[in-house]
């Protein structure tokens, strides 16, 4: 932590680390297998939805003024965060409404 320490890692230490890294990574099949197997992949299948799909929310009525804006601002974010642990909360879990009040 002193100001005079300007020590650099030695070439020998780097060589040791690179050698160790190479042996750690010496499982060349792993990367290939990963590409081949068919695990489910979360959130990767993104698609650009720029067409008018006939799903929920895409009504063909003129609802452009009717959105959540009016009441959303007063909504407290809710969801699984309320199950998230919080050391500052009396319940031990996030209580979103009280969260700000707890932080003095």
């Amino acid at each position: 932590m002193s100001a005079i320490t300007t020590k650099s890692i030695s070439a020998a230490s780097l060589a040791l680390a690179v050698g160790a890294a190479l042996s750690l990574a010496a499982a060349p099949a792993a990367a290939q297998d990963r590409m081949a197997d068919k695990e489910k992949c979360f959130g990767v299948a993104l698609k650009g939805k720029n067409d008018c799909k006939a799903g929920a929310g895409t009504t063909c009525a003129g609802t452009s003024k009717v959105d959540y804006q009016g009441n959303a601002w007063s909504l407290v974010p809710k969801g699984s965060c309320e199950k998230t642990a919080s050391p500052s909360s009396p319940t031990g879990h996030g209580q979103l409404a009280e969260f700000k009040e707890k932080k003095v």
Binding site: I9, S13, L14, L16, A17, V18, A20, A21, L22, S23, L24, A25, A27, A30, A31
Partner: peptide, 13 residues
């Protein structure tokens, strides 16, 4: 841990 970090990078191609 330099070796572990480099090893991870290599493992992950």
């Amino acid at each position: 841990d330099l070796a572990a970090t480099l090893g991870l990078l290599l493992q992950k191609s």
